[in-house]
Amino acid sequence: MTAPFLQVKDLQVSFPTDDGLVRSVNDVSFGVARGETLGIVGESGSGKSVTSLAIMGLLKGAKRSGEIWLDGISLLDASSEEVRKLRGRKMAMIFQDPLSAMHPFYSVGQQIIEAYRIHHRVTKAVARKHAIDMLNRVGIPRPDKRVDDYPHQFSGGMRQRAMIAMALSCDPELLIADEPTTALDVTVQAQILDLIRDLQRDFNTAVILITHDLGVVSELSDNILVMYAGRAAEYASAEDLFTAPEHPYTWGLLGSMPRLDAEPTDRLLQIKGTPPSMINVPAGCAFHPRCPYADLASRTLVPPLTEVAPGHRVACHIPVEERRRIWQHDIRPAVEGGR
């Protein structure tokens, strides 16, 4: 078996602050193959965005250790100039709020042209034609006219399309989408998710989709990484994660979401408490103060990420059989309700 296109091993990211070293990401490992999508799910402060920015090399003042391999290149060993040349061409990124993520003073076309010409020695006219092609490709009507419009003249959905056009202009092999639909309405969200799926198929791109929404992640992902307080809580195929989740945090996330496909229950399964601040992460399993099943071990020891089934890893102290029993008897009926 060859290594996947992107391979992250034991990634650690920490920031020196006045309150000491903040470890935003701890021992996170995953791989993404070409044409495959990894969903990273977590709440605010879970380290999901920091992980993606660490891959892109866009974190200022952060200390990174571990390994990040992109198509055989070690990103942590490469010089910043080498990594810069990979950005945009080999790996690209789209962000949550396309209005603030695009420069307000330059037209959409100018920004795509700029992205293309960094990595390709072509004339402005050629790049402009490419920009129009890309806008057309992402479904913007009358691209030859809209190319000269400014970001604020686009609607939210169109802006995100333009952002995708910009990210894909150099045909990157890895696309990181950080909450790409959070700022959009639900019908527009569906359009953008469809678009990402179509483009991924056409370009055979590896995609990392970062989101807090389990619904969004299940639309696209082959594998899902659930992060909590900078660590991997559960890492599984989408199939396994939704049919046989084993981490109490995953259960909580599933139970917290009211869903359209099930008869509403009286009360949602809630997780008590709040996500921890990264300055003051609970000892042991970071989830233990919110976990109803926490025992002494959870309070003192960080649970290792253990493989419970092929490709399914969980970091939890509860014995496997016990976990499966709790899921089957207590959680699943409540989550799936009258489905």
């Binding site: 866009l58 993520a101 307000p104």
Partner: peptide, 10 residues
């Protein structure tokens, strides 16, 4: 954010 985007473009 747009500065981060500019860097992300390479």
């Amino acid at each position: 954010d747009y500065i981060r985007t500019a860097r992300a473009k390479g």
